[in-house]
Design a protein around this nucleic acid. Structure first.
Lengths: 363, 363
DNA sequence: ATGAAAGCGCTAACAT
DNA sequence: ATGTTAGCGCTTTCAT
């Protein structure tokens, strides 16, 4: 009978049968020698390993996965792989998963619902053993949602309300409150807030922290100091233009931005307009991206333990994939406020005395 | 006979046989209805799709891969996933591959040879259909090298000399020459070079471009103006300290850095020491990272088309995986010099007149 | 300690 | 147009 399968390339990789033939044992023995070496005799093991070496054999993982009903792969869903915030989280994720023997499949959403549906299919097809969501929602397609895939799921960075799987984040509200309290402690009473997209949960929390801090001093937020942004650098520049357009006496003396990129855009634009930072206007950001320590002046910011968050979430996922139950629903890691030049009191922290390094400070 | 395979979970996903049973057709017909809809009758197709919907069937990809001897996955090897240069390239890669139906498996090397070996195994195991190298070398383990895996391979960003697979990069030497020629055209004759790691091919090429440009004006590089760095921000600060330590009359009037991070570190440190940029010292970087347009002053730099490079390399890889032969060995994309404030002639380009946007200029 | 053989779920060659 | 069936390469149960 003619072959019923695709023709094999001339240089086909060795399979377990090739090794078995060469070692003059059965395929089962080869499999055992590789998976449970202690169960075969010394001599057999030697012969098998020798044969593996000469054939250059590597197990076919598709076959193993098919048989074992597992893939040793994790789907990691990010909104934008090029965003440096996520990529640092990814580093932690990668380290942890790879240490546990899992590979990462990266799903870069990039605003494409079509892509999202494809990855949902991937998950339902059990091509991954678990899913890590950095995107603030459970992905789904028209016909179905990942939460019904009965697959280990962990969310990270952006909390998804009302879900029962583990989630890892920082306490955004408390961290924001702390940042604004720092400005209050510096004597500021006229503090503006530069927001992210209004419906975004991160912004909701950070805005709440801002209001809480003000309320602690019996201050009410002024509507014209609530600037709407979108987490982008240029939103920072636009906010700066709006502030500069205010009559001098109506301007805030400090600004808390919902993320560092906007804070840096703001910083740059107001200084170009002749405002001194922190002298005329203090600025505090959020996230703790690397550039917050490079910009001029260096930016006071809430540093999120991004890598650790990634590692922690990956750890939970590994536990779930290993069959563990009863994991915590919510884990909030500690963020810290790095005090830098952009919010220093007059005269202090001038010219990078600390050579640009940040000083963690709590409370 | 008792089952010889792992017990199935109660909620096992539907398989093709379940669909076939429900639709009252054979498994082959289901397979066909899904893969080649035009080959089955209208009525059958309807029934199959209906059954697919009610069972929630998704093909098991491990089984398909095993049968088809393909994985629809590509291994992407990066030195550091958190490096923003790579992550922007990755975006282009992801877009292209995902459009072609391929998933990405990210190998984050992070200086671990043990990890490298694991990914080599992955490739030899044919768990991926192709490999994209962003790491400047063909990965390998003690026992074997990926180049003998007989797998489609494309390298990008850092050229690997002497290999025959397609490589995508920019002409680093020409781009560096152009950057230095720009400084020469601005009247600078005392131009320093801040290098990357000396053995790195990117640095070798960029250093050569620097020397060529000087030679074009019959200038010889001065040894004390050749500053050794390592592509890091702090290498930039250190270089600044060395320049500031030079007697005023011995200092360069311009510096070309082998990458933007160092240029920005340098920029910041010399300004803190009281040097005006570009007034006292002009600076040009390399890469075109986003922050080069945010820093103070904005940084003139060679902009690499990172996303496009990623897309192009991915395209070649797709072609190879589709069986195409005779692809070009080397493709060099156009880089352009973005003229910004850090190298502006005195008085020009003051205060972000162009609102921070870059102006591409060739030649 | 080792071997024989049954599948994992799917595709495609062959038969009808 | 549809059905039957032989594998893809591996792990594991059962038998020896």
């Amino acid at each position: 009978m003619t072959p019923r399968s695709p023709r094999r390339p001339p240089q086909a990789p060795a399979k377990i049968a090739d090794v078995a033939r060469l070692a003059e044992v059965s395929v089962a023995t080869v499999s055992r020698a590789l998976a449970n070496p202690e169960v075969v005799s010394e001599e057999t093991r030697r012969r098998v390993l020798e044969a593996v070496r000469t054939t250059g054999y590597t197990p076919n993982i598709a076959a193993r996965n098919l048989r074992a009903r597992t893939s040793k792969m994790v789907l990691v869903v990010v909104p934008d792989i090029a965003n440096s915030f996520f990529s640092e989280v990814l580093r932690g994720v990668e380290e942890r998963l790879s240490a546990a023997g899992y590979g990462l499949i990266i799903a870069n959403l990039g605003n494409s619902t079509e892509k999202e549906a494809r990855y949902v299919d991937l998950a339902f097809a059990r091509q991954v053993d678990g899913v890590l969501l950095l995107c603030g929602h459970v992905i789904g397609s028209q016909s179905r949602n990942l939460k019904h895939a009965n697959l280990p799921l962990v969310s990270i960075c952006e909390r998804i309300p009302g879900e029962s799987f583990p989630q890892v984040e920082i306490d955004n509200r408390a961290a924001a409150r702390q940042a604004v309290e720092h400005l209050l402690a510096r004597g500021h009473r006229r503090i503006a807030y530069l927001s992210g997209p209004r419906q975004n949960i991160l912004d909701v929390e950070r805005a709440a922290g801002y209001r809480e801090a003000l309320a602690g001093q019996a201050l009410a937020p002024r509507a014209d100091w609530l600037l709407e942004g979108d987490f982008s650098f240029s939103a920072g520049s636009r906010a700066a233009a709006r502030v500069m357009a205010m009559p001098e006496g109506e301007r805030p003396t400090a600004l808390f931005a919902a993320n560092d990129e906007m804070a840096i855009g703001f910083l740059k634009a107001v200084q170009e307009a002749g405002v001194r930072v922190p002298g005329d206007l203090a600025v505090v950001g959020f996230d703790g991206i690397a550039y917050a320590d490079f910009c001029q002046p260096t930016l006071t910011t809430v540093v999120q333990p991004r890598r650790e968050m990634g590692a922690r979430a990956a750890e939970f996922l590994c536990a779930m994939m290993a069959g563990e139950r009863d994991l915590p629903r919510l884990v909030q890691l500690e963020a810290h406020l790095a005090l830098r030049a952009s919010s220093a009191s007059q005269g202090a922290l001038m010219s990078g005395a600390g050579s640009g390094s940040s000083r963690p400070v709590r409370g």
